[in-house]
Simulated assay, not measured.
Amino acid sequence: MRVTLLGTGDTTGTPTVGCDCDTCETARERGIERTRFSVHVENERTGESLLIDFSPDFRTQFLRDGVSLPDAAIVTHIHFDHLDGLGNVFRVFDALDLYAANETDPKTGNSVAETVREDYHYLEMLEVHPTTPLEPVEICGFDVTLVPVDHPPLICYGVAIEDPETGAKLSLSGDTSYDIPDPSRTVLADPDLLLADAIVPAHLCEYHPMGGRHENNDGVPRTFGTKHMTREGALDLADELNAEQTRLVHLAHYYPADEAFEEPLAVDGEQYDL
């Protein structure tokens, strides 16, 4: 299993357009990018590949990193930075299988699968497969499970991907607070690589209108506001899941420049062989 981090940034990416903060300036000076979130997973046994989420930066990411076009894809939720790149499949793909959860979202009245099918009805090459969370499905030779996480007000899912022959396992927290349900944690546990949402360091919670939540025993917030984990929350989750290796993703440019590029914060283009 070869994992390529195509996009490791949050909704605006780093550098952010029109921003001259120290972090964005440092990223420009170093030639570092954190584009909007997307992950490419190649099954070298079968010659197939799977894409997690459609970044608005789809074209740039695939041209830059030279990975193969996917045979199948997953959409974790319908926020634009995870979905709006789907239009890039037009006149690029002859066919694409797309998997998304079949649970109805009380906020929208549709499941993720239904929203994708309705919003991208014009993509005739797209075959949408409504998928039941917490039930594994075989995709590209992998056992893949969508797991409910906590990203109000919309429903959102993490993903566990396991190679049934080699035992290699990749877990993605998805966009989530620290309050991931126990059944989902069980599915995500014991990965060789965990990609965990860590939008900002915990000390920035003082600037969020809702502050921080889910404090650890030392009073450090593990959730920034309501939607995303802090760096500290993501690292606590990694310990609890017994992750062999962890990379922090969905990172905002609000990280101070002297913290923004430290381990284990990811940048675009990283590759891992599991």
Results as ranks from 00 to 15, higher is better:
H208K: 08
E206F: 09
A257P: 04
L251E: 03
P256Q: 08
M210C: 06
R213N: 11
H208S: 09
D273C: 14
Y272E: 09
V200F: 06
V220P: 02
Y255C: 03
P264C: 08
R213A: 15
E270W: 12
G269N: 13
M210E: 14
H253K: 08
V220D: 04
R247W: 13
D239N: 07
P201T: 11
L274M: 15
G233C: 11
G225R: 09
R247F: 05
V220R: 04
L237K: 13
K227Y: 02
N217A: 10
R247V: 04
A198N: 09
E259F: 05
P221F: 06
P256H: 08
A260R: 01
C205N: 13
E240M: 05
A260K: 03
L237V: 13
L251Y: 02
L265P: 00
R222Q: 13
H203V: 10
K227N: 05
G211E: 13
H203K: 15
E262Q: 05
P264E: 02
F261E: 11
E244Q: 14
E215T: 13
R247E: 06
D218L: 08
E240L: 07
Y255V: 01
P264T: 01
H228K: 11
L241C: 06
H228D: 07
E263W: 06
P209N: 14
V200Q: 05
A243R: 02
V267N: 01
A202L: 10
T230A: 10
D239Y: 01
H203Q: 11
L265S: 04
P221T: 08
D258I: 01
C205P: 03
H214T: 05
G219N: 04
V220Q: 03
V220H: 10
D236L: 10
G269P: 11
L204A: 09
P264W: 01
P201V: 08
E262K: 02
D236E: 12
Y255T: 04
E259C: 00
D258K: 06
D218S: 06
R222N: 10
N216W: 03
F224N: 08
H253R: 11
E215C: 13
H228M: 07
Y207G: 04
P201S: 08
H208W: 09
E232Y: 06
E263M: 04
L235W: 00
G211P: 13
D258M: 00
H208D: 15
E270K: 11
A260I: 03
A257F: 02
P264H: 03
L274R: 14
D258E: 13
D236S: 12
A266H: 10
Q271F: 00
D239K: 04
H253S: 14
E232N: 06
A252T: 15
R222F: 00
L248R: 03
D218G: 15
R222S: 05
L274T: 14
M229V: 09
G211K: 15
A234G: 08
E232M: 09
T223A: 08
E262V: 00
N217H: 07
A252V: 02
H253Y: 11
F261C: 09
Q245V: 09
H253Q: 12
N216D: 15
N217T: 02
K227S: 12
G233V: 07
A243P: 09
R222L: 12
L248W: 00
G233P: 03
Q271K: 12
L237N: 08
G212L: 07
A266L: 07
D273L: 10
L204K: 11
G269W: 12
V220Y: 04
T223W: 09
